[in-house]
Design a protein around this nucleic acid. Structure first.
Lengths: 137, 137
DNA sequence: TGTAATCCCTACTAAATTGATAGGGTTAAT
DNA sequence: ATTAACCCTATCAATTTAGTAGGGATTACA
């Protein structure tokens, strides 16, 4: 299941991408438009900023803006920042690999094989989708 | 992330499928072979039984057995029983649909669109994989 | 220079979920 | 009758989730 955090983050990014003026977008505006608790959203956007996806401007007329063109922002990057590993088990994760402690040999593990397939098919979707695609319509 | 419950369940099913004699397979044997806490495994196999995937025989020489040929058991069914919805958000779930309370119109929701794609690609994998595939090798 | 608007940061918390463990009940074979 | 096995319920500690609270730091502008 996708966390609310991730869902809100995606919606917020989409909102900002759609807006794309020269003015940064305020948290409160996004929160109101997308029905997201403001304080919660603040912390999410902060995460996205620290990850380099968003930039910010403080003070009056401040807000958040994209650091790249929407068409250059892949879902793989967004999802890894917001949700963590894309793989369903650590032993098939590209970026967060970890050995299972119950598994003597993962190359003979049926779950391992299956989850590699799932990972690859999900990755394909995320790699082929950019923020520009989300912002269409 | 896949729960341990699901992972253990998949391993257990694979174990039983590989064994496939006329004797039912005992919980303790699976638990020992696959490094799964026995009591925990008991409750998982019970769930699989109640869902109709496994049958059981009580008492001496008892154990669990498959109710169908491995090649007839799709991962979609197994995953739904063990892990619940395959979709990452309830609003794109085929079997557990639920409206998002923050979303006025889900057809205009960017997350919705993306998650439909993910769901479909994951479903494709699960539909094309049976327990017989997991039990290979 | 003061004030309001805005992002930034830390700490806390209630509720839910996960990954078990405990303890015994029921059934079947011998 | 005894033992081996599944069946069932309750409980629990740790972790994660979805926030809330409270204020600090910075900037625009009057």
């Amino acid at each position: 299941m996708l966390s609310k955090r991730t869902k809100y983050g995606l919606k917020a990014l989409t909102y900002i991408a759609k807006k794309e003026g020269d003015q940064p977008v305020r948290v409160v505006e996004i929160a109101d438009s997308e029905n997201i608790p403001q304080k919660f959203l603040e912390s999410i956007l902060l995460t996205l900023k620290k990850a380099g996806l968003l930039g910010s401007k403080k003070g009056k007329h401040g807000g958040y803006y994209l650091r790249n063109e929407p068409s250059k922002i892949q879902m793989t990057d967004v999802m890894r920042v917001l949700e963590g590993p894309i793989a369903m088990v650590p032993c098939v994760s590209l970026n967060y690999y970890e050995k299972c402690d119950d598994c003597p040999d993962e190359h003979q593990c049926s779950v391992h094989k299956l989850m590699i397939e799932v990972r690859d098919s999900t990755l394909k979707v995320f790699r082929n989708t950019t923020l520009a695609d989300l912002a269409l319509n």
